[in-house]
């Protein structure tokens, strides 16, 4: 298990390397001269040349990449074109917030999704089930920003339970996390429901009942764990969606996360920040998937990490 984990982590290296080359080439392929953008419209030709030189953008591409890589290996991602700060600091300031928002959103999605899914499955075809179905339908179809504004109106402006925007206190994470997590919660609820219904039809559930176990133990001990497996897969996939949706949610709630920073950096052609941010997001994604596999292998003894 330990060595398998190490091997899986080692597999990260080519992924990261590949992503870094792809991002590097993409950044240089898209139109938009960083020096010009950073210097602004009114900058003189000399100003722009000065900026270009100071960024090293006047060097050949291969040299630029080699320099990026050789520094990145020792953890130096350069300085931001825009802010002149070390990219590590730029990302470091934001990454924690992104992780916090992502973790809160996924925690919400998993908790609510599983709860609703289990309730719907246990009471399948009853009105409870129908309500759950309707709620999850709304959950997946309402756009993030609209949901965010609705929650702001309802919970901040009207009920005044949560602050509107920002990231000052723990309360600030609630609405963005719910906004970000709700569509995932809906998807998880649906998968959970159908999976649990399927599992409850299994022979070993009948065995458990024949043993005289109360229904909550039958569901909780015998069915839930098996039914969770497809949910784990879906949660892993939802992480990708969360990374995407985070940009909008971070914007609506003025959450200082990495998604917003990345979008700003792309708009400003702040190459070092984009490069590092994409690498960090890619590594996060790979690690999250590894984590998913790990959870999977814990849930199902037939699966090993390979």
């Amino acid at each position: 298990m330990g060595t398998l984990l190490v091997r899986r982590l080692a597999a990260l290296v080519p992924v990261i390397l590949g992503v870094s080359v792809a991002v590097f080439l993409m950044l240089h392929a898209v139109p938009g001269d960083p020096a010009q953008i950073i210097a602004g419209q009114e900058a003189s030709v000399e100003d722009v040349a000065q900026v270009r030189h100071s960024f090293g953008l006047d060097q050949p591409l291969a040299v630029q990449y080699a320099r990026f890589l050789s520094r990145a290996v020792v953890g130096d991602f350069g300085t931001s074109f825009r802010t002149k700060r070390p990219v590590i600091d730029e990302i470091g300031d934001r990454y924690g917030y992104t992780l916090l928002l992502g973790a809160a959103a996924i925690a919400f999605a998993v908790a609510v999704g599983i709860l609703v899914g289990v309730v719907a499955a246990v009471f399948k075809h009853s009105w409870v089930d129908n309500v759950c179905l309707l709620v999850s339908l709304v959950g997946v179809s309402v756009p993030n920003f609209f949901l965010g504004l609705l929650l702001m109106l309802g919970f901040s402006v009207w009920l005044q339970l949560f602050p509107l925007t920002g990231a000052d206190t723990a309360w600030h994470v609630v609405l963005p996390a719910v906004t970000l997590g709700l569509p995932s919660a809906a998807v998880i609820a649906r998968i959970m429901r159908s999976s649990l219904i399927e599992i409850l039809g299994n022979d070993y559930i009948r065995t458990a009942r024949a043993k005289g176990l109360p229904e909550w133990l039958v569901v909780g001990r015998h069915a839930l764990r098996n039914a969770l497996m497809p949910v784990v897969t879906v949660v892993g996939l939802q992480m990708g969606y969360l990374l995407g949706g985070a940009v909008i949610v971070e914007t609506v709630f003025a959450w200082p996360g990495l998604g917003r920073l990345t979008v700003q950096a792309i708009a400003a052609r702040d190459f070092p920040v984009v490069q590092a941010a994409v690498l960090v997001l890619a590594a996060t994604f790979v690690l999250v998937n590894l984590l998913t596999d790990l959870v999977y292998s814990i849930l199902d003894p037939r699966v090993t990490l390979s």
Binding site: D203, Y204, R206, T207, R209, A210, K211, P214
Partner: peptide, 24 residues
């Protein structure tokens, strides 16, 4: 009934391959 199941009356099923919980 639950007090009787698995206690005074027990049952075994046809499919040994699927009648046991794979994760316990």
């Amino acid at each position: 009934l639950r007090r009787i199941r698995g206690n005074r009356i027990a049952m075994i099923f046809q499919e040994p391959m699927t009648s046991l919980n794979p994760v316990l």
